[in-house]
Structures are given as structure tokens and as C-alpha cells.
Design a protein around this nucleic acid. Sequence first.
DNA 1: ACCCTACTTGACCGATCGGTCAGGTTCTGC
DNA 2: GCAGAACCTGACCGATCGGTCAAGTAGGGT
Lengths: 205, 205
Amino acid sequence: MPPESSTTPPALTRPSTGDELRATALAQFASIGFAGTSLQQIADAAGYSKSSVLYHFASKEALLGEVLTPAIDRLEVILNRFVDSPDETASRRRFVDDFIDFLLEFRLELHTFINQAQSLRGIPVIDRAGVLIVRLSDTLCHDGASTEDRIRFGIALGGAAYTLVAGMTFLNKDIAPADEIRQALSVVITELLAPVAVHTSQSRK
Amino acid sequence: MPPESSTTPPALTRPSTGDELRATALAQFASIGFAGTSLQQIADAAGYSKSSVLYHFASKEALLGEVLTPAIDRLEVILNRFVDSPDETASRRRFVDDFIDFLLEFRLELHTFINQAQSLRGIPVIDRAGVLIVRLSDTLCHDGASTEDRIRFGIALGGAAYTLVAGMTFLNKDIAPADEIRQALSVVITELLAPVAVHTSQSRK
DNA sequence: ACCCTACTTGACCGATCGGTCAGGTTCTGC
DNA sequence: GCAGAACCTGACCGATCGGTCAAGTAGGGT
């Protein structure tokens, strides 16, 4: 292996084994599911042995934890920034932008959590993500939100996760000028969440 | 077992063993995933032995097929009725109604297919459902549909599937006057699909 | 009585599961 | 050169996987 300057910070260096394994595992978890993915599959796909996977990660659950944690940390930051913001309406626009950035960067992580949270209850990282999503829902819908508001939020969340992962390689095949997707997402998500936002002080008619 | 009139058609009679197993398997497939569900789990949950499951169904894949087929048949009928209809705009409204009925009746089946189709390619029933969804997408979006139109369709489809299954017992907890959900779904889905419909003869600007 | 069909089951099969462990290789600091 | 950490691996463990098979039970028709 070519020598790297002794103090290389964790950047610019080519991906470590742990990173490769995390990325491979994420792809498998998102498409086949956590329960349906074996450590052997992950090891084979990444070009290592099963023992190597278990050397880098204490267990299959621990691997899931390390895979999902960065996404959840990021979502937590976004939500906190939104909650702390004083300006109501302006911060909502920025929140939607932040959220779409989050969607695009962590779509596999979100898809994994969104579609398997129910069956993975008890795993710390899943429970943590669960309370975050509930908090997000409550924050966006306030207290007296109508059923329609809740459904709007659910469709935006689950719909985006599906479209960006399963729908992408299945319906659209290739179409994807990237920022065209981003803009379309922005329009649709904003449209879905807007009524929720506007209702704020008039939801009880 | 109490005697039933010799010619009981497949109705009014209490659920057969096969029906129980299908229902149990569907619930497991939808929440844990096909790959993550074992025949033993299904058998235990339904109160039979694993051998009994394999007596009624030739294999795990065959069980999946029998579980999903009714939903796909129904979707095919809806789509064909929509395609054959002469009136463009009026039939779209009826299609959305049909589709929402379909969503509510077969939400577990749709959720199972939507989130696992990619990893189950090759299984006949899955491939059949796949071409159906693509046909549905093409029919609704026509040829020159924009990226936004495609994304609208994807979000409506995936969002509804998620909200009615995972989101239901996870975000909304209990709120569910049933027809209130139906009406809210109608509003949101119509709103999501409306632009797609309107574009029909003006999509190329 | 008889048999036949429908149904259910436990024992069993080879393969694979998540996980442990001891040993090997390679690199680094001294 | 050498000790030790870091990394990778095959052999192995008990449990469980999907699936087969023979035996057993219960009813229905004759």
C-alpha cells in the first residue's frame, strides 16, 4: 500500500474497509431488507470474508446502527434548526430545502428506516429515528392537525423515500438530470406540506 | 366440524386453513419482508406446523404468489377499464376513486410489492405486477411527461402505500374514522395526479 | 366394514444463519 | 530486529433456514 503522510485526517484518503462495508451493507439493507440480508452476502459483495465484517462491527445490529446513524444525526440537526428558528413562515421554506437535501443525500438510509422500522423495534438506532420522525410530524402538523394534514405528511415522507429509491430504478429507468429531480421534488413536497403549514392558526374552522 | 350444505360456494363459510395462512403470511411479508419471514414464523403465528404450510402451498414463493395475485388481478381490471374508457377527463376521476378503493382494500399487498419488487425480480407474480405498474405509470403520464409528472406519480403511489401501512400504526397511532381517511386520500391523490392528467395535450410547452 | 381423500404432523435433510476463535499476514514504532 | 497493534481469514459452533417424507388421524361414500 502506498504510504500516506502520517497524519492523514479522515478525508481525501481512499475509502477505508469500514466505509466500504458500510456502503455495501446499506445498499443491501435498503433493497433486500435487514432481516433478509446475510452477513455473507455483504461480505461477498464487498470482497471480504464474513469474519472480516464481524471484525469491524460487533454484530449485524451494530452494523445497522453505524449505517443509519449519520442520517439520523443530520435529520436531528435539521429539525432542531427548524424548531429553534423564530420566523415561522420563512423558516419553513428553508426547512423544506434542508429536508430535500437530506432526502437526496440519505435516500437509502431513509428508505431502510421508513420501510422496516416497525419490524426492527428495540434496536436503539431505530427507536431513536422513530421518536425523531414522530417529533417531525408533530412539529409540522402542530396539535390540532386534521387527518388530511397527517396524511399529507405521511405521503410526502414515504412517497419521497420510495420514489428516490425503488421508483428510480424501476419506473424512470434512466431519466435523471439530477437537479431537474431536485427541483421537481421541491415543487411537489412544498405543495404537499404547504397546507399543513398554512393551517397553523386556522386549522380549526 | 359443523356440516355445511353440500354445495357451499366459497363464501359465507368461515375462513379455510389456506385463507388463514394467506392472511398471516401477508401480514408478515408486509412488515418483516419476504426474505426476512420464515415459514416457521408464519406457521407459529397461524397456529399450524411448518409442514402444514408446505402442504397447502408448494413453496414459499408459491405462497407469495397466491398472496399477491388477487391484488394484481384487481389492479389489472381497474387499469383496463381506465384504458378502454373513451371519455378522457371524466374517466380519470373514476379511476382515482377505483384506485383509492384498491389502496384501502389491498394496502398490505401493495406495500409488500412496492417495497420489495426490486429484490424479488424473477418471481412470476412480482414480474407481472412490475409490468402492470409500469403500464400504469405510462398510461397516466403519457409519453412526453416531465420529470415532475413522473415524480408526482411515484410519490402518490409510494406515499399512499407507506402511509396506509407503516405510517398508520406509527405516526397516527389511532386516529382513523375510516371514511375520513378515504376522503383525505382522495383529495391528496387527486391533487398529486391532477397536473399529470391536465398536461395530456399541452405537456410540450 | 372398507377405502379413499383431505389434512396435519414430527423427524429428518443439506444449506445457511449470526457469531466465536485461533492463527496468519502486514505494517508501525522502537 | 522485534514486539505489538491492526487486519483478514478458515474452521467451527448451535440454531434455523426451505423443503421432503412417511406416518397418523378424521370423515365421507359405498
